[in-house]
Amino acid sequence: MKLDPSFIWTAFVQLLGAVPTTLYITVVSVLVGFIIGTAVALIRIYKVPVLYPIAVAYVTFIRGTPMLTHLLLIYFGLPVLIDGLSAYFGWSFRSVNMPMIGFAYISFSITAGAYMSEVVRSGLLAVDRGQIEAAHSVGMTTPQALRRIVFPQALAASLPNLSNSVIGMLHGSTLAFTVSVVDINAKAEIVASTNWKFFEAYVAAALIFWGLTVLIERLTAVIEKRINLYNRGGVV
């Protein structure tokens, strides 16, 4: 096999068209996952009745099974649920109307939620509980104390791990090709299939993922610096 450096550039340019799809999957799964993870973390910290064992089971199951398995369970299981509910309630919507990327959004958000719940929970537990008691003593409610005092400090403490979660979801988004979503890796396979130069195409894909990862790391460093300044009172 002879390496064709020129095709690496050709493939690189063609793969750029698939970058938005990969970023959409990553951003949606991270944002929704963060909301889910925050809710689950609070349920576990405050041991909310009924919801607490459900939250523990959710985190244990998702963290104990592969990401691809979650995607396949959603891909094959969700249509059965949707079509069953549609038939029962007489809805016109059917699973065939759902775009393939929707399965990736749902599955990866559920996966991200479990992992981010542990990140958020560790950040919240790192904040001295005495600060909440002090907030109560000046008339703040628990939600106010969490929003104004605890969450900013917990976010600063959790930011490196949150960054790792974002990078993990970026790389995990490559699994979306199993449900016919054309992400960067799937596009690389399509591009390479025209002349069988798979190595060059995947080198181009690797360079794009590397660049995106470096960008996330740089953004994290900037955000971390801003948050630390805010927590020290340097930024209003």
Rank of each mutant, 00 (worst) to 15 (best):
V30T: 15
S29Y: 03
G130E: 05
Q131W: 06
G77P: 02
N97S: 15
S95I: 07
L125I: 07
A156S: 15
T21D: 13
P20H: 03
Y115W: 12
G37L: 05
R226S: 14
I208L: 06
M1D: 06
G33H: 08
Y75L: 10
M140H: 12
A87G: 15
T10E: 10
I167W: 00
V56D: 14
P160W: 01
L162R: 01
L159T: 12
I110E: 07
F108P: 05
V27Y: 02
I110R: 12
Y202M: 11
T213Q: 00
K47N: 05
P5D: 12
W91Y: 13
V32G: 06
H136M: 15
V166Y: 05
R129Y: 10
Y58I: 10
E200R: 09
N164F: 12
S193V: 13
F209S: 01
Y105R: 04
L162D: 06
V236C: 07
D128E: 01
L155Y: 02
M1S: 06
M100A: 13
R94D: 03
T142H: 13
V27M: 05
A126P: 01
T220F: 02
V138K: 14
V236W: 08
M67Y: 03
I25P: 04
L31N: 00
T111I: 14
E224I: 04
L72K: 02
